[in-house]
Write a protein that binds this DNA or RNA. Sequence first.
DNA 1: TCTTAATGATAGTATTACTACCACAAATAA
DNA 2: TTATTTGTGGTAGTAATACTATCATTAAGA
Lengths: 225, 225
Amino acid sequence: MKLQLQIKMNEDLFLRNPELTDLGRKIIKHSIQLISQHGFESLTFKKLAEDIGSTEAGVYRYFENKHLLLVYIISWYWGWLEYQISFQTNNITDPIVKLKKVINLLASTVEDDPNTSNVDESLLHQIIISEGSKAYLTKQVEEDNEHQFFKPYKDLCAVIGNIILECSPKYKYPRSLATTIIEMAHIQNFFMNNLPALTDFGKNKEESEIILFLNDLVFSSIKKG
Amino acid sequence: MKLQLQIKMNEDLFLRNPELTDLGRKIIKHSIQLISQHGFESLTFKKLAEDIGSTEAGVYRYFENKHLLLVYIISWYWGWLEYQISFQTNNITDPIVKLKKVINLLASTVEDDPNTSNVDESLLHQIIISEGSKAYLTKQVEEDNEHQFFKPYKDLCAVIGNIILECSPKYKYPRSLATTIIEMAHIQNFFMNNLPALTDFGKNKEESEIILFLNDLVFSSIKKG
DNA sequence: TCTTAATGATAGTATTACTACCACAAATAA
DNA sequence: TTATTTGTGGTAGTAATACTATCATTAAGA
C-alpha cells in the first residue's frame, strides 16, 4: 500500500493549487532545491522557470510573488512536522518522553519522507533553518497573519505548548518555551555551522549536542513547579 | 562636559567612513529611520538619497550595497550595547545581579542615547528585532564572517557567556545560552507584538513579562550545578 | 595657490518583478 | 460530435532596482 500524505494548505497562498498539476509540483520541488542551494534572496521566478523548463509567466500563474512561495513551502513544512510529531509521539504516555521526542524531531537532520514524492524534507529543513524567519520578519506580517498564513506554526506551537503543560501543569510560559525550542533548534544549528563562536558546539558540530542543550534548558525550566 | 561616544567600526564595511562627514552621518541617521519605518526590503539607495536630499551615487560612495549598510548599523548597535552593559554592570559584584541587568538591557525598550547624536537607539532597537537576523541569514555568511563582520555580536556573546560562567562555573553551554537570551529577547518581543499566539504575553503586551520569562529560563538552567 | 577630497548632477546598463496578450493542446461538457 | 474550459508556452513590454561611470563644482588642506 502506498499512501500519499496530503497537507491541507491555505488557499490564499496561491493563485492556482500547485499540488494539482505537473507544473505546480515542479515549481515546489525546484524552488526548494534552488532556495536551499542559493538562498531565498537570489531566487527569481525567471531562474526558477528556466530550471523547470517553463516560463516566468507560468510560475506567476501559481504564485503572486516569491514571498508567498516561501510562506507556502514553510507552511507546508510546519504542517508536515506537526503530523510527524503526532505520528511519532502517538502511544507515548509519558509527556516527558514525548517532549524529548519533539526536541529530537526539531533539532535532528530530517530525512526525506518517501510519502511526499515532490518535496525533499531534508532540503526543506535547511530552508527552515536559513530562511524560516524571513516568512514573518516583514512589514506585511499583520496582513499575512490576517490571512492565517502562520496558522501551521501557531498550531505546532500549541501542540508543543500542551505537551509542556502535561509535563508541568503550573509552568507559566508554555507557548514562549515552545517557540524558544523551535527557534533555538534552528538558530543554534545555523550558528554551529556558520558562526560557531556563538555556540558551544563548534568543535564537533554535532547536532546531538544541540539536543542536549535544549533538553537541559527545557527540563530545568519546567521541572521546578 | 559633553562626551561623544565613538564605536570603532570594521573598515571593510564601508567604502568611506560615514562618521567623518555630514553626508555620511545623514546616511546612517536616515537609513535607520527608513528601515525602522518601512522595513529593510523596501529600502533602496535611491529612496534613501532622496530622503537625505542627496543622490544615489552619493550613497554608493559610502556603502557598496544595502546589505553592508545593514550589517554596519547592526554592528554598531552590538558595539553600543556591549558598552552599555559594561557601563551599567560596572561595580556590580554579584554575577546574578549582573546577569539580570543584562537581560533587562536586552529585553527593554531602548531609550535614545544623548551621547550619540546621529543614531536613534530606540529605532535601532526596533531594527534589531525585525531585521537583525537578516544580517547573517544569507549565503554570504562565511565570507562576511571572514571579514570579521560579526565580531561585535561574538564579543557581546562572549561577555554574556562569561557572566553566565561567573554565576555557574560548571554550566556547560554559556555561549549558546547567551545567544538564546539575545535572540529570544528579540524574537519574543516580535511575536508578542505581531503574532501573540506564539507567546504567553498576548494580553498585556508588556515587555516586563518577557524579562520574567527569560529570567526564569536562564536561572533555572544555571542554578542546578 | 595648487591640489585633493567630497559632493551634485546626469546618463546608462543589466536585472528584477511583474502584467498582458495570443496561440495551442488536452481534457471536459453539451 | 462539437464547443468550451483549463493548463501551458511564448513573446512583449514596463517600471523599478541595483548598480557603474563621467564630469563639473565647491570646500578644505598643503
